[in-house]
Structure formats: structure tokens, C-alpha cells
Amino acid sequence: NMTTNERRVIVPADPTLWSTDHVRQWLEWAVKEYGLPDVNILLFQNIDGKELCKMTKDDFQRLTPSYNADILLSHLHYLRE
């Protein structure tokens, strides 16, 4: 019986294949993992993996503070390698 913190996010390895639900799961995981403040996951609700991967730093900064944008982008970049 796992707690929420221990729950593994199971999403496709390639972020471009993510559904909007996968994006939400990834964001929820990242918020907990990195202790990100002020991430409004609802702002990302219509973004799927293909859109997420096209987003620039400016795009991320429209949805979340700069600090969060940096961490989310670097993790996304890591996943795409």
C-alpha cells in the first residue's frame, strides 16, 4: 500500500507521446520531487506532450515562475535525451 509520495509516475518514455493526463501526472510528480512552489497545474490542463515539447522557456514562464520553468524544462530535456 503505497503513499502518494512513493507512487511511481508511469508515462511513456517519449514525452512527445504524452496525453494531457500524462502531462498532469508529470507535473504533480515534479512539484513533489523538486518542491516547486506556485505551480498551477490547471494552467497546463490542455497541453499534451507534443505541445509541451514545443514550449519555449518564455512559454513556460507565462504559466509558472521562472525558477519552476527552469527545473521543468531541464527535466523535460533530460527525458528527451
Rank of each mutant, 00 (worst) to 15 (best):
P37T: 14
H77P: 02
K50P: 11
D58G: 08
T20Y: 04
T20K: 13
S74H: 15
K50M: 12
V39I: 12
T56N: 08
Q45A: 12
L42T: 10
L72H: 00
D21N: 07
D70M: 04
T56V: 09
L72A: 01
P12S: 05
K54V: 04
D38A: 05
L79P: 05
R62N: 12
R7A: 11
I71C: 13
K50V: 11
A30E: 09
N40S: 04
H22P: 00
K50C: 12
P12H: 03
D59M: 05
N46Y: 08
R80F: 12
L63M: 11
W26F: 09
Q45D: 08
I71N: 02
L43W: 08
P12Y: 03
R62K: 12
K32E: 14
Q25C: 11
L76C: 06
Q61R: 10
H75K: 14
D21H: 08
V11C: 15
L43E: 10
L27R: 00
L72P: 02
A13G: 14
D38M: 03
S19Q: 04
P12R: 04
H77T: 07
H75M: 00
T64I: 03
H75G: 06
E33A: 07
R80K: 11
P12D: 10
N1Y: 13
I71L: 07
C53K: 03
Q61P: 02
L42V: 10
T16C: 13
L17Y: 08
W18C: 00
Y78C: 13
K57N: 04
L72I: 05
Q45F: 04
M55G: 01
R8V: 02
A13V: 11
R24E: 05
T4M: 15
N40R: 04
S19P: 00
N1V: 05
A13K: 09
D58A: 13
Y78P: 10
L27G: 01
L76K: 02
E28P: 02
Q61V: 11
W29G: 15
I71A: 13
Y67W: 10
W29F: 07
R62I: 13
R80N: 15
S74A: 13
L42I: 07
K32R: 09
R62Q: 14
E51T: 13
E81V: 06
S19D: 11
L43P: 06
T3W: 08
A30S: 07
R8G: 05
D38V: 01
V11T: 15
G49I: 00
E51S: 12
L72N: 00
M55W: 08
T56L: 04
R24P: 00
A69I: 06
N68E: 14
T20W: 03
V31T: 12
E81D: 15
I10S: 15
R62S: 08
Q45E: 13
E28G: 05
I41C: 10
D38R: 06
P15H: 01
N68C: 05
C53N: 04
M2S: 07
P65N: 04
I41V: 11
S66V: 07
V9M: 15
V23G: 00
E81M: 03
I41G: 08
L42C: 09
V23Q: 00
L79K: 11
D14I: 01
F60E: 00
W26S: 01
V9L: 14
Q45W: 04
N1P: 05
F60T: 00
L52H: 01
L63I: 14
L79Y: 03
Y78S: 15
L72R: 01
C53A: 06
Y34C: 05
N40E: 13
N5S: 07
I10Q: 15
L63K: 05
I47K: 04
S74F: 03
F44T: 03
I47P: 00
S66Q: 11
P37Q: 10
R8E: 14
R7V: 09
D14R: 01
E81R: 10
Q25M: 12
T16I: 13
T64Y: 07
H22N: 14
I10T: 15
L52F: 03
V23M: 00
N5V: 11
D48I: 02
I10A: 15
V11I: 15
T56Y: 03
L79E: 09
E51P: 00
N40Y: 04
K57R: 11
Q25D: 09
R80C: 15
D38W: 03
V39Q: 05
S66G: 10
L63H: 05
A30P: 00
R80T: 04
M55T: 01
I47H: 04
T3S: 14
P12W: 06
R24T: 14
V11E: 14
N40F: 03
G49W: 00
I10G: 15
E51V: 09
A69W: 05
A30I: 06
Y67S: 14
L76E: 01
D59G: 05
T56C: 11
L27D: 02
L72E: 01
P15C: 03
I71M: 14
V9G: 15
H75C: 05
V23W: 01
T56F: 02
V23H: 01
W29H: 14
L27V: 08
P12C: 02
